[in-house]
């Protein structure tokens, strides 16, 4: 009883309900899950392109986190590196670079992603575009030569840049000696993190099981690309099996899977409603095919996602779920 009276003199916390919270759920836990899901593909990239690739990934992650801390200190904001979002941005950026780039490229990219795209717009949750993608596009446009030298699989010593599957797909065929299975397992040239389709899908399944992402965006995105490339293949393909091959090659090559599973699903820059997500995915897919077919670049994933990023608010607004007990459209009272 004495102890009880003692406790009674303590002050109690008075705060609004709810007084409990889903255990183990935080921004950091979500970001850590994304990081974990990316790791297999990142490790495969380092195996495929050697130590240079690993170093680029490391530089990218470290510099992103450093720029986040630095900007926040300079802007007198709370330092938020513990939410792990900068680390994820860094890893994604690194995975979007070829292993051939000089080491200052990832640093420059991180600076652009974190300072310009993220912090100047207000920090986590406020950015309009996906930071890693915006940085990739910035680098592609600024260093067109350096950003398009791709080493072939497992040949890094004095390697000669080779045509990527994407480049030759413009004419409707895969490069000589490359099969669909090579693409699936990641025995091909390309950006560090985008080569292993299998491991990217494994990461995506992990995120789906952990309920970090929902199925709508990846399925709508990839489904649209599959449909369009099957119906309208390049190179005048007509036979069913040729069309199927072209479709599979288009799905498995380039940054499509990395983009559809990890970049288009970025929370901040994607819609929150189920239908908004479907439309967002369809839009991304259609733009990817369009850009791959008709633009000056071989790749269109980054541009496609960045363009769709601009529509997020409208997609959310126009696909607002019907509220319980309300008509979808309120009848306007006659004036």
């Amino acid at each position: 009883m004495d102890q009880n009276t003692d406790f009674q003199n303590k002050l109690l916390t008075v705060s609004p309900s709810p007084h409990i919270h889903r255990r183990g759920l935080s921004t950091a836990s979500v970001m850590k899950d994304v990081f974990i899901a990316l790791l297999p593909a990142a490790i495969w990239g380092s195996y495929a392109f050697g130590w240079r690739a690993a170093v680029i990934l490391l530089i990218s992650v470290v510099s992103s986190v450093a720029f986040e801390a630095l900007t926040e200190i300079l802007l007198r904001r709370t330092v938020t590196i513990s939410d792990c979002s900068a680390a994820v941005t860094g890893l994604l950026l690194g995975m979007n670079l070829p292993s051939s780039v000089p080491f200052y490229i990832p640093v420059l990219g991180s600076a652009f992603a974190i300072i310009v795209v993220k912090q100047l717009f207000g920090g986590i949750g406020k950015n309009v575009m996906n930071p890693a993608l915006a940085a990739r596009v910035f680098l592609t446009l600024s260093f067109a030569g350096k950003m398009t030298i791709f080493y072939p699989f497992r040949q890094t010593v004095d390697a000669v840049a080779s045509a990527t599957p994407l480049a030759s797909l413009k004419t409707g065929a895969l490069p000589e000696g490359t099969t669909i299975w090579n693409l699936f397992f990641g025995q091909t040239g390309g950006c560090i993190g985008e080569v292993s389709a299998l491991l990217l899908i494994v990461g995506g399944v992990y995120l789906l099981i952990r309920k970090v992402i929902r199925w709508q965006i990846p399925v709508a995105f990839l489904g649209t690309v599959a449909l369009l490339t099957f119906l309208f293949p390049r190179g005048g393909l007509t036979a069913f099996s040729d069309r199927l091959d072209f479709m599979l090659a288009s799905l498995l090559s380039g940054g499509l899977l990395l983009g559809a599973i990890f970049m288009a699903t970025d929370y901040v820059t994607s819609p929150v409603t189920p239908w908004g997500r479907v439309i967002f995915g369809v839009g991304c897919g259609a733009l990817v095919v369009f850009l791959r077919y008709f633009s000056a670049y071989n790749e269109g994933v980054s541009f496609a996602i960045l363009i769709m990023n601009a529509f997020v608010w409208y997609l959310d607004k126009f696909t607002m779920p019907r509220v319980y007990g309300k008509e979808r459209r309120e009848k306007k009272p006659k004036a």
Partner: peptide
Amino acid sequence: IHTACIHC
């Protein structure tokens, strides 16, 4: 831990 809304 409290961060800004991440629009998840």
